[in-house]
Amino acid sequence: MTSDRDADERDFFLDSGRPAPARRASATKPHYAGHRERLRERFAQTGADALADYELLELLLFRSVPRADTKPAAKALLARFGSLAEVLGAPLDLLCEVNGVGRSVALDLKIVAAATQRALKNEIRGREVLSSWQQVLDYCKAAMAFEEREQFRILFLDKKNTLIADEVQHIGTVDHTMAYPREILRRALALSATAVVLAHNHPSGDPTPSRADIDMTKTIVEALKPAGIAVHDHIIIGKKGFASMKGLLLI
């Protein structure tokens, strides 16, 4: 059943591309005629690096909106959220607030985001994590950087440091999450993990470890040590970067 919101969304795009009644019989083509094929051809010939963020968004919106000019919606999304990564990471309800972006378009964008996360996760699955560190960081950033609440995520590793499981242990508030050392130990033993990588996000955008982050990490390290389970690192993810506690010599 079609919702009023989806109907409004279609009307927005159709109206933006529909000639005025007095000109309906005219042979004049809309200004964006041929634009889609030209943009697709540029992508095919030169690749994504030659396109601006709004043009890549246009390409995505072509699939959601069969006709009409999608450039205004693409630029509105970037104006609202700031970057292509932040558009894909934005919550569904906030995407729907952008002019011309109804639920169906927003869902398509979230599907693209989910597919990107899955692809990045597959890059580290079955590989030695410590030698694929950039892929680990890329995956954590895609999965957590734009979440509105703090997530505490654990990557469980086997004796070869390959990924066994990737689990979110807890979701907290906008500025606080809890980690439970006994639960981490119990789960690591159940998976026969010999090491873990801890990760959580700071919705504020600043990945600088807090005193609470440092103390929590030291508690987890001490809890896992008697079982011979190493904590390789605790990564804190922000919108614009990350912090490694191991790199900062905090563990």
Score class of each variant (00 low, 15 high):
77 L>D: 14
44 A>M: 02
99 N>I: 09
103 R>M: 12
193 A>T: 00
183 E>G: 08
62 F>Y: 12
205 G>W: 05
175 D>N: 15
226 P>A: 13
26 S>M: 02
112 V>H: 13
162 T>M: 11
150 E>Y: 02
218 K>G: 06
122 N>E: 11
141 K>V: 08
123 E>P: 01
190 A>D: 08
84 L>Y: 15
126 G>C: 04
146 F>S: 03
23 R>V: 06
8 D>M: 15
85 A>C: 11
242 F>P: 07
52 A>E: 14
221 V>W: 12
75 K>A: 10
69 D>S: 03
190 A>F: 06
215 D>Q: 10
250 L>V: 02
54 Y>R: 06
18 R>Y: 03
52 A>G: 01
231 V>T: 10
186 R>Y: 11
173 T>D: 09
195 A>M: 13
58 E>Q: 14
127 R>P: 07
189 L>A: 09
85 A>P: 08
65 V>H: 13
175 D>W: 13
198 L>W: 01
166 D>T: 04
53 D>F: 11
188 A>L: 06
174 V>A: 12
82 G>S: 08
114 A>F: 10
83 S>Y: 05
141 K>T: 14
214 I>E: 01
16 S>E: 09
208 T>K: 05
151 Q>I: 06
83 S>A: 06
24 R>Y: 06
91 P>N: 10
164 I>S: 11
52 A>I: 05
105 V>T: 12
198 L>N: 00
116 T>H: 15
155 L>I: 03
124 I>A: 13
161 N>G: 05
115 A>Y: 14
174 V>F: 05
139 Y>I: 01
82 G>F: 02
80 R>G: 08
99 N>C: 06
168 V>S: 00
143 A>M: 04
22 A>T: 01
215 D>C: 03
120 L>F: 14
152 F>D: 07
205 G>D: 07
132 S>M: 14
186 R>L: 08
76 A>P: 12
183 E>C: 12
34 G>F: 00
51 L>M: 02
35 H>D: 11
54 Y>D: 12
238 G>S: 00
1 M>T: 08
223 A>P: 05
39 L>Q: 05
204 S>P: 05
24 R>Q: 04
249 L>I: 09
96 C>A: 15
172 G>A: 02
72 P>C: 09
54 Y>V: 08
59 L>P: 03
125 R>L: 09
91 P>W: 04
56 L>M: 00
156 F>S: 01
6 D>Y: 05
195 A>C: 15
196 V>W: 00
106 A>M: 07
158 D>I: 02
8 D>Y: 13
147 E>A: 15
157 L>Q: 04
192 S>E: 03
55 E>G: 08
180 Y>W: 13
67 R>W: 10
13 F>V: 07
187 R>Y: 02
70 T>G: 08
42 R>M: 04
145 A>E: 12
11 D>V: 10
19 P>R: 01
186 R>N: 09
24 R>S: 09
142 A>E: 14
61 L>P: 09
165 A>G: 05
180 Y>F: 10
130 L>K: 14
235 I>G: 03
107 L>V: 13
231 V>M: 04
37 E>F: 00
